[in-house]
Amino acid sequence: MNADLLWRYLPSLLSGFAVTVFCWSVGGALGLVLGFAIALARRVPLPPLQWFLRAFVEIFRGTPFLVQLFLLYAGGPYVGLRLSATAAGVLGLALYSSAYFAEIFRAGFGAVPVGQIEAATSVGMAPFDVLKRVALPAALIAAVPPIVNMLIILSKETVVLSIITVPELMYQVQTMAAETFTAFDAIFAMAVFYWLLVECVSRLGARVEKRVTAFLSPSGARG
């Protein structure tokens, strides 16, 4: 592999990277919103709703991501859902991650110490305010580390999108490799690239986590 080759393919590689970032961010954001909605909905005591939501979460956490993608992209048209590869990719990431985020939020709600709720109700706070001012903030703070972790996992899942021909980075690299017969070098370079990317994102994530939960430790609170 020489610099010449790399230069020639730079536009397609950059566009691939852009698609990766796009799918990851939009998919992740949708997943967070949907997951949060599911977690909230699960607190509603309506058995049919509970059953449906539980089934949703079990299905999307119990089956491989690739199968879900195939279902959306190849099977979608048979239920009237004609999606482009990228749209299917983003939707797939959103649905897949929403199931995990729903469980993370659910655990977050459960992690709120009962004592804090009791303190709020015993002072006469209305239930809605207790939720808004005590339970929710605590639940969200508890959820930050697992959410960061899941977002990192999601960034790695974007490569699976290449299998349904979404033109993200892996797809572009494989195209380049096939056209120039440099499979080994290309895959090696991509491995190194992803490794560095994930390392950086992980460290960033750790820093974000620390910032958000700083006030919980004796030395961390400032101002």
Binding site: V160, M170, I187, A191, Y194, W195, V198, E199, S202
Partner: peptide
């Protein structure tokens, strides 16, 4: 760090090639 950071699909193809 490497085997958790590199996506599994990339690892599989890498071993293959």
């Amino acid at each position: 760090s490497v085997f958790r950071g590199v996506p599994l699909l990339v690892q599989l193809l890498f071993i293959y090639y």
